[in-house]
Design a protein around this nucleic acid. Structure first.
Lengths: 146, 146
DNA sequence: CTCTCATTTTAGAATTATTCTAATCTTAGA
DNA sequence: TCTAAGATTAGAATAATTCTAAAATGAGAG
């Protein structure tokens, strides 16, 4: 949904979003937002750091982690951890959704809530709040976005 | 299904299972099986190690990891990793199933395949093989097994 | 403007779960 | 009873992430 290439948010828009979320818009944070909110597709902290090193004179790994954590806490970004990898991945899709893992490429795809119907038949004392779903398989045709 | 308390398998039965799976039945492996195949409920490697230290004169952490890996490779045990924890958990339920996480206690419950109906409406090029599902919520009444 | 104090950033150390290494011990079978 | 393959071990190594404490930055008061 918020996934597209190129400039999906101007620097000004990012600053506004940060301020609206009570996050001081520093150079590092704005840059990282440019990547994680627009360009990136389910990046890991490592990938964010690699990108940031190319796009900023200097950035420390700690700042990358700090910033990602801040963005998640501010509700501007979500984090997921799946069983196929040890790394946390970040997702700018703030809606409730699931994921599809293409086991060939290792790539993740967002699966919209509307396309998933889950019916549970659990004992009455199980009160369900939400769920994490990772669908695994393969993608046949070329469905690339980048 | 294979979850019960006390002796669900005799030493002899464990030895037979190990041999049938082409796993040399050593003292350490038999002991660990006693725990992970019978007594334990979704243990972590750490918990297996703690139990093993109480029940064996000596056991190294490396052996615990080696043994768990061996059992998983032999198809006698399954391993899962969920987003709420950094640790791998082991499960003696070999059937296809999902899990419920009681967020109050942190405890996991197996959810049988029959109680989960998942309908996906994905584009034709998405070929689904299987899925990982963690249902999160709370358990109200006392539903303890131990 | 500029001073000050809270906030951010930073490099590197620490932590946690797990895997690796290489030496030693066991054991099944010739 | 020997031997070689396999198992166990202590401790080092790894990988992702978090912590620490010092240095840099920035927003607002005056």
């Amino acid at each position: 949904m918020a996934k597209s290439k190129g400039i999906c948010l101007t620097t000004q828009e990012i600053e506004d979003r940060l301020r609206a979320a009570n996050v001081q818009p520093t150079l590092q944070r704005i840059s990282i937002c440019q990547y994680v909110l627009c360009e990136a597709d389910h990046p890991t902290a490592e990938e964010v750091h690699a990108w940031a090193e190319k796009n900023l004179a200097t950035i420390s790994l700690a700042t990358v982690y700090n910033t990602l954590k801040t963005l998640v806490a501010a509700g501007l970004l979500r984090e997921f951890k799946f069983s196929h990898s040890d790394k946390v991945i970040y997702d700018n899709n703030l809606e409730e959704h699931s994921h599809f893992l293409d086991e060939k490429s290792g790539r993740l795809f967002d699966i919209h809530k509307e396309n998933v119907q889950l019916d549970l038949d659990l004992a009455g004392n199980f009160k369900v709040k939400n769920y994490d779903l990772l669908i695994k398989g393969e993608i046949n045709k070329s469905n690339k976005e980048d």
